[in-house]
């Protein structure tokens, strides 16, 4: 447990260094309250929610509505294009590099993490690993590597004009991460 705490604080520090905002929730109730608060404070109106067991278990649709936002509609592309915020789940968080990792083979997960300007990422703390090698081994030991495995470290950034760092060039300009504590761990698969 102490080790996990160390990983959590290392991850949080590194992710913040990269410009991500990191929050923690120790129960599903807390997580829902946090998501509501985040939606309210970012002021987004249109939210795209990916399908995943973790997200489903948190039952976020009423939360999004309670926060005064609405779930985007239409084809996946339309949803992704119109959403101001995408909510997706991640399996792993790499402490050393402040990186989130998820299987993004499913199109909604992929599009909702890539297109909207704000990305809300939820990851269970039991998904914390020390380094990239552990992250890869996690996938290797589970059989076939997923079709689209994405490693995300901070928001989308560029320094192509005069080496000045600017975020949100093609992907999200804001990355908000919620670490979900142990107890609530839901019927995850």
């Amino acid at each position: 447990m102490a080790e996990r705490e160390e990983l959590i604080s290392a991850f949080s520090a590194q992710a913040r260094l990269l410009g991500a905002e990191v929050y923690r929730a120790s129960s599903p109730g807390e997580a829902r309250a946090l998501v509501k608060e985040i939606i309210e404070s970012t002021g987004v109106r249109r939210v795209a929610l990916a399908s995943s067991p973790l997200l489903a278990s948190l039952d976020l649709i009423p939360v999004i509505e309670a926060a005064g936002a609405e779930l985007v509609k239409g084809s996946l592309r339309e949803q992704a294009e119109t959403a101001e915020m995408g909510i997706t789940a991640f399996e792993l968080a790499v402490a050393e590099t402040g990186t989130l990792v998820h299987d993004a083979t499913e199109l909604d997960t992929r599009l909702f993490s890539m297109l909207p300007l704000v990305h809300l990422a939820l990851v269970p703390v039991r998904g914390l690993v020390a380094n990239l090698e552990e992250a890869l081994n996690y996938w290797l030991t589970r059989g076939e590597i997923p079709g689209y495995l994405a490693f995300v470290s901070g928001p989308s950034r560029t320094a192509d004009i005069e080496r000045v760092l600017t975020v949100g060039v093609h992907g999200p300009g804001r990355l908000l991460i919620v670490l979900l504590g142990e107890e609530e761990v839901c019927s995850h698969e």
């Binding site: 990186t99 083979t105 076939e144 079709g147 495995l149 470290s153 901070g154 992907g171």
Partner: peptide, 19 residues
């Protein structure tokens, strides 16, 4: 670029869905 890791590292294995 003196970064610990780039913002994105993408591993693509075979064909995936698209719209």
């Amino acid at each position: 670029t003196a970064q610990i890791l780039t913002s994105y590292v993408t591993l693509i294995t075979g064909s995936v869905p698209a719209v």
